[in-house]
Design a protein around this nucleic acid. Structure first.
Lengths: 206, 206
DNA sequence: CCTTTTTCATAATGACCGTTATTAAAGCCC
DNA sequence: GGGCTTTAATAACGGTCATTATGAAAAAGG
């Protein structure tokens, strides 16, 4: 029983996602959030809890709906394809929307006040977990022979994450998709070749 | 004539530098700044102007005193040495101080409120200028033959900057110096060889 | 229809933000 | 040493922050 909720929770979350993406966790105020969502303050609190809880819900949504290329990439057959797909996916994500470029997981809280420390740690943990998945995938690739015996899966994972993070910083600075694709290609040029892999380009032509 | 200033302006700037480095521009409050500097609020205002002016002074100091390895690197004889020195310098800078890791130029304002937009743009411009200097250096290297004719100086500059930014993000997340050195080595593994350059390691052993 | 329950909107909360009067203290010139 | 200038310290400024009390509006049950 009781009154029905009038606003669309999904749309409100999407609006909050955009605001956090653009301004980061601490840079986004409730004035921004309520204006974007078209919903009054108490409605956001009753629906999502406080600001940190709202951000965590938004972050989960972000990973589900925008960073879904990561699990997809991890299932590709070779380590090189995994890396190439991750790079291309990150470029798409960080440059697709002109009004909120970059990556929420990076610019959410890179540095901030003590009050934002839990959120900052949450973002770090998410990145660490992603890197661990990547390392495990490359260990498998090494076992399967599509990475050479001399390859270091942990280093490759850390390197790839560094390039991804750096491209996210550049995307937030307004870099073009073309520039980022050149960066990705250069990153892949370093990629150790497995058995019978000679073509080192991002998207091999037939 | 008039009363002499009692606090050390240089030390106050150093203190503010540390605070901004740790918490970013908007994350640092005047309560933090005055406590770190041991100086009351009005003294900071009369000596440096408002928060943005203080940050810009701090940023200039940061480049002078901490990022001085960049102009030094640009004068090295080969493009590869330039890249290697930049990578090593960034690793040193971003991991040397355990209480303020990462890079002020990155985590100062990556994303923030509208009020921080001018500072954000200033940081972007500084990075763009650094990348332009790097590109020019690599163009010279190409002309001098220590980069091959197929090399793209703009791409190499953007790639190197991406790796540097990514390492700064990782350093702020607490990554160890050893990990970052492995990342740097992997980044250099792709480096296009000039005439008679075969050794692609970061620090060649005798 | 009336009560109950939930949501809505208005507006207020205390705390902290960056910034600045205001007043007292300290040093130089005449 | 008095007048003048600059700095120091206290305390306040208006504004915005995240958060919430309050009461009206709306829907369901009995």
């Amino acid at each position: 029983m009781g009154r029905h909720r009038e606003f669309d929770v999904e749309k409100a979350l999407d609006a909050a996602l955009c605001v956090f993406w653009r301004k980061g966790y601490e840079g986004a105020s409730y004035a921004d959030l309520t204006e974007a969502a078209g919903v009054e303050r108490p409605a956001l609190y009753s629906a999502f809890g406080n600001k940190e809880a709202l951000f965590r819900k938004v972050l989960a949504r972000y990973y589900e709906r925008y960073v879904d290329y990561v699990p997809a990439a991890l299932q590709l057959p070779t380590a090189r394809e995994v890396a190439a797909h991750l790079l291309q996916g990150a470029i798409d994500l960080t440059t697709r929307f002109p009004d909120h470029t970059g990556c929420l997981g990076i610019q959410g809280v890179l540095a901030g006040s003590d009050e934002a420390e839990p959120v900052r740690q949450a973002l770090i943990e998410a990145r660490v977990e992603a890197e661990a998945q990547l390392r495990e995938r490359f260990e498998r690739a090494k076992a399967e022979g599509d990475l050479p015996e001399t390859a270091r899966p942990d280093t490759l994972a850390a390197f790839l994450m560094a390039v991804l993070h750096g491209m996210a910083v550049q995307a937030k600075a307004g870099f073009s998709r073309e520039t980022l694709e050149a960066v990705a290609e250069q990153a892949l040029a370093t990629w150790p070749a497995g058995k019978g892999e000679g073509d080192l380009r991002v998207r091999p032509q037939p």
